[in-house]
Amino acid sequence: MLGYILRRVAVGIGLVYLVLTLIFLALHLVPGDPALLLLSQGDGASATPEAVERVREQLGLNQPLLVQYWDFLSGVVTGDLGQSFRTSQDVAAAIGERLPRTLELVGLATLIAVVLGIPWGAWAARRGGLVDSTTTTLTSIGVALPVFVFGSVLILFFSLKLAWLPAGGFASMGEDPGRHLQLLVLPAIALAVGFTSVIARMTRSAVQEMLHADWVRTARSLGLSRRRVFRRYVLRNSLNPVVTVIGLGVGTLLGSTVLVERVFNYPGLSSLLVDAVTARDYPVVQGVVITIAVLFIAINIVVDVIYGVLDPRVRR
């Protein structure tokens, strides 16, 4: 098992390296001078030569490519992600400030989705009939709801009409814990609805498949109760594919925060990213993208390890 974990971590580190290389190359493979490209606002207006020179200087574009590559990699490893074009703030520090807020949101949404999705899917598969077909329809709608539309609808009803919860903003845990939590509720629900549907659907189809597994018949032939057979021989085995989907889903969730944070005016990592993209503040964009990718890879390592715990066949 330890060997399996170490192997997964090693693969993850290799993947991080490839991801970093891809991000580095992205800037250089795009046709045209990267500095000019970043300064043009998409409207063809040309930037002043001084501005171009400044960008070049900041991104180190005047140096040979290999030197740039080395500086980039060693910068990332030592936590130096450069300075913002706009605010000259240290990118790593800005990310450090914003990251926990986004993680809190993602964590809460994942918790909601897992706690609701798995029992819901299992229940639908086991009951069949109307429960099952309703579940199928509801989850189809759930996965089709864009977070920015659903989030706005939540605001419309729970903030504007019913005035139960604030429409958006942020309060730190230290200053106002009550408001901090209140402000988390709607964004977390907006994020969780699609994820819950995905988990419920996967659980449902996995359970349906496992109900027909040969070992279920074996368990029944031993005289075990229906409950025990379902829990230990159906649901337990259904978790493997569900765990995979959860791993992938957390990544999608990380991406969706980009929209949710805008809807709810939540100052997390993703709103930092969107502001930076809009202003074409490349060092910040790059820093956030690296952070999210590394985070996602780390999550997937954890998921693979859980998978290994659940399924003895994959840990060798």
């Binding site: 040969d214 018949r217 368990a219 029944r220 005289g223 075990l224 230990r232 003895p312």
Partner: peptide
């Protein structure tokens, strides 16, 4: 009924199956 069948299954009457790979739970 089911509960009576359950008492008999595995105690008075036991079963072995064709595919010992899929008949046993891999986990």
């Amino acid at each position: 009924d089911e509960s009576r069948l359950r008492q008999i299954r595995g105690s008075d009457v036991a079963v072995i199956f064709q595919e010992p790979m899929t008949a046993l739970n891999p986990v």
